[in-house]
Design a protein around this nucleic acid. Structure first.
Length: 458
RNA sequence: UCCUCGGUAGCUCAAUCGGCAGAGCGGGUGGCUGUUAACCACUAGGUUGUAGGUUCAAGUCCUACCCGAGGAGCCA
């Protein structure tokens, strides 16, 4: 390949050009080729944006025979002039002076110039980012990860890297994946790498609480693992979670941050990923733009659990699962509240202590805890959080009540022995945020290589 | 893990009451002076998820299993 005399341009930049450019170099993958007698059109995509750039290759090019052979999926390097398009549908196009075929994709390339099912694309998860939809989804995923860090940075939060491998069998947040160097079949953890049983983390919360009680406002953002055998469109075994934790903060402040965060991230996507979001609004969920704009514009409903039970109890349409104080709300109840009754995000708070974990702060009624869940239309629960129990005696009593071994949590309890303060935090499922922002209905389609029961091919 | 639905060409799907397994797209060949998932003509392409069973005859009916989807539980 000849040494380029001009640096490579990204397609996104060229499509936004103010004026024609005499010589440009683009490198990317051919999405489709249309041939006429004396020239060919190539649609080239380099991943920098949703749109392709149209390349015109005339028959008098030195290697025009090679151009005729180019197949969908092939990689090319095109040198030429950026000129105003003579055709309709695009402002700029590249009039090629040379087309190098970097690699010719054989006819077995599975992606066609037409719509494929999500189920089929999941079977070729390694190639699906070359489609419009998945390219857009994973560009948005990248932008949103940045937006999360920017959100916290602007508010003075510190980013804490909590451990991936953990020795504490924490809080019963789901089945654990065991981490071991023992040969298969052996279970004497005294001889194992850490000298005791170790697992992949299910949550960074207990660790990050320790840093809230030293650095103030902190968060973790990393992978978490649940070995639950759950086969739904909203669960994967490996997912990313954002967990802020704030010292000297009560449940009200916690709900304030949760609402502000969801609004801010949705607004970021609308503003900074407009083309990609637009693809989802047109082809995936016609209501998407309305849903997202409502989230940004209107206050979330804040509703105590007890009042939610009353509202649900008054509904004429029967639910499959009974509504009663003391029962956890089922999916159908949550969806009714956020999709039918209020038609916008709802923050439920002050749940009965019997259905929540030990670390949530006991309210004065001795019946409820300072918990809160944020429910959003179509996705359901996107955030779960609470004010934490900072009183040593109360926490200790709750642990005993729930049959937990204090020795296991000795380090955690130290935070309540030495300078304990009211503090609060929550967990936001990153993939569920992406489902909200894109309208994608299956969580497997917002994860580059999703892990679900029986599925780890990639 | 439970309930429901599904599995037919590379992909998306059709096949009436159990009676010759088809179309579009994609691939190949040829054509076309500006196309926009280009278009036109021709062409190749099948162990109907797997294993059994019923029947003169099974894509279609029965049994088991595998895989996928939707819903449920659990949760983020």
């Amino acid at each position: 390949m000849p040494t380029p005399i001009v640096p490579r341009s990204r397609v996104a930049a060229l499509l936004n050009a103010d004026a024609a450019i005499e010589t440009v170099l683009i490198k990317g993958w051919v999405r489709t080729k249309r041939d006429a007698k004396a020239f060919s059109f190539l649609e080239v995509n380099d991943g920098s944006c949703l749109k392709n750039i149209q390349v015109i290759a005339d028959a008098d090019l030195p290697d025009y025979a090679g151009v005729r052979n180019i197949t969908t999926g092939s990689a090319v390097a095109v040198t030429g002039a950026l000129v105003a398009s003579k055709g309709k549908g695009q402002q700029w196009e590249v009039q090629a002076s040379s087309v190098d075929v970097v690699h010719l994709a054989p006819e077995s390339f599975p992606l066609q110039k037409k719509r494929h099912s999500d189920e089929f694309l999941r079977t070729i998860a390694h190639l699906r980012p070359r489609t419009n939809k998945y390219g857009a989804a994973f560009r948005i995923r990248s932008e949103m990860a940045y937006a999360v860090h920017a959100f916290f940075k602007q508010r003075g939060f510190r980013y804490i890297h909590t451990p991936i491998i953990t020795g504490s069998d924490c809080e019963g947040a789901g089945e654990l994946f065991r981490v071991t160097t023992l040969p298969p079949g052996e279970a004497d953890f005294q001889n194992d790498f850490f000298g005791r049983e170790a697992s992949l983390t299910v949550s960074g919360q207990l660790s990050v609480e320790m840093f809230a009680l030293s650095l103030g406002d902190v968060y973790t953002f990393g992978p978490t693992f649940r070995a639950e055998n759950s086969n739904t469109s909203r669960h994967v075994a490996e997912f990313w979670m954002i967990e802020p934790e704030m010292a000297f903060c009560d449940l009200g402040g916690n709900m304030d941050l949760a609402e502000e965060m969801v609004k801010c991230l949705v607004d970021y996507a609308l503003t900074n990923c407009a083309d990609d979001v637009d693809l989802f609004a047109r082809f995936v969920d016609k209501q998407l733009r309305h849903t997202l704009e409502t989230i940004c514009a209107k206050d979330f409903i804040r509703l105590p659990y007890a009042e939610a039970i009353e509202i649900l109890g008054r509904v004429k349409k029967p639910f499959e699962h009974p509504v009663a104080y003391g029962n956890d709300l089922q999916s159908e109840h949550e969806r009714f509240l956020t999709e039918t009754h209020f038609r916008k995000p709802v923050i439920l708070h002050d749940y009965p202590k019997t259905i929540k974990p030990f670390y949530m702060r006991l309210n004065d009624d001795n019946k409820t805890v300072a918990a809160m869940d944020v429910l959003v239309p179509r996705v359901g629960e996107i955030i779960g959080g609470s004010q934490r129990e900072e009183r040593f005696d109360v926490l200790s009593a709750r642990m005993a009540e729930m049959g937990l071994d204090e020795m296991e949590y000795a380090w955690y309890l130290d935070s309540r022995r030495y300078g304990s303060v009211p503090h609060s935090g929550f967990g936001l499922g990153f993939e569920r945020l992406l489902m909200l922002v894109t309208g994608i209905s299956n969580i497997r389609d917002v994860v580059p290589f999703p892990r679900t029961p029986g599925n780890i091919a990639f």
